[in-house]
Amino acid sequence: MPLVTRLGRCATCLDALGLLALAGVLWFAFAWQLLLHELPCPLCLLQRAAFAMAGVGLLLNLRFGVRPLHYGIAVLSSLAGLVASGRQVLLHIAPGNPGFGSPFMGLHFYTWALITFFALLAYCGVMLLTDRVDDRPQPRPLGFLARLAVLAFLAILAVNALSTTLECGLGPCPDNPTDYLWLRWL
């Protein structure tokens, strides 16, 4: 059996793992924010939003079956994330620039984000090569792994919405935030 056909049969499992990985990325960034007290800048927040948007595409695949539209959502979201992370890489690319935030395993988070968005694009490309299209986009029950991924994803989206509101209030964020705007009053 060709490899692409085998991949197509595993699409739901792979999408669940992909969504779990995206949720993991967002949870890790949030844990880093809390533990090191490094608040995300506006571009960092845009990259988090792009991860969340890409996750919606994979979530739709899990809930309604595999469709090109869902991969299209993940592809466009990854492109949006590439623009934001690429812009931040270019902002700090000049020699002598220390970059924004602490590095993780030698690379800053925006560089990791750039690599991850590339990987997500490649993943979507490979999955589209399998040419799998499920019959009707109807809601379907989720398996254990998919349910776990979706719950972790929904939870971190809610946490990010709350955290960003605490950090920036109902306005724009400063370029180099140092504290939570809505916690100054406590």
Partner: peptide, 24 residues
Amino acid sequence: VMMLPFVTVLLSAWFAWRGSRAGA
């Protein structure tokens, strides 16, 4: 409003979870 995309993407994911593809 920096928190706005997080609210709208949360709504999108919520609609997907609740079975409304068009809403998502």
